[in-house]
Amino acid sequence: MKPFFEARHLAYTYPGGSPAVRDISLAVTEASMTAVIGANGSGKSTLIRMLAGLSQPASGEILLDDIPLREWQPRLRAREIAYMPQVTTTAFPFRVLDVVLSGRTPHVPRFRLESPGDREKAFQALESTGAAHLADRCVTALSGGERQMVILARAIAQEPRLLLLDEPSNSLDLKHRAGLMRTLAKLREQRGLSVIMITHDLQLTGSLFDGIVALRCGEVAAQGRPDEVLRSELLAEIYGEPNVRAQRIGNQTLVWIDT
């Protein structure tokens, strides 16, 4: 299948710093799940922010349906790509349902308010992440994990084709991690959603993901199917940790540190 979203030779340098991303290319097809892994500071978040359109690459290009991302109208782009940051801090006690409802914005004409249909979609998104019981709570009163599920619901309510997630499983317990992966798998099946997810949770990536992009110092160190990338010597190189072990067991890959 032809990819609908492509990044070619991206590079990015923070003002006054060394290059965070040197040369990264990746392509995403419909209904695919891609994991981005790599050590801290390897350029994962910088990459995903560029893919989300939040920062402009110094060189290289990002194409959505063969049109450069920066030429897309922000509102139309927002119907195609949703982004969930690593942490969301909110200074005001917004209600959970209102936060999720704000994900409908790209689908609502500029000077209109959300319709009952939008409310329903927002609520369904909240249900799909298992956070419906939080609907009338204040976001400021939620735990980190609960807030993640709310922000994920907001990204789902946006009904994108591509969902960019920056370490969503970080503050989630086992149950919510499982819930997150089930939700993503269901959306892929039902809507053909594609996902690019940054994660340190290599255990998660073994079975559900179609591809893994491993970054090292702002460059792609390895790219391929999970069973190709999740190998002891490759992981040892990516993370600079010689004692990483990976073993394929059936459909799963087990990753651990040999102490």
């Binding site: 109208q73 922000p74 927002a78 790509i81 982004y83 914005t105 000077f111």
Partner: peptide, 23 residues
């Protein structure tokens, strides 16, 4: 007042406002 909706999204979170179509 014409910026009400943009400001609403910004008040929730600056980053996601950018990905929801706010310039």
């Amino acid at each position: 007042l014409a910026f009400s909706r943009q400001l609403h999204l910004l008040a929730i979170d600056e980053d996601t406002a950018g990905t929801l179509g706010v310039n």
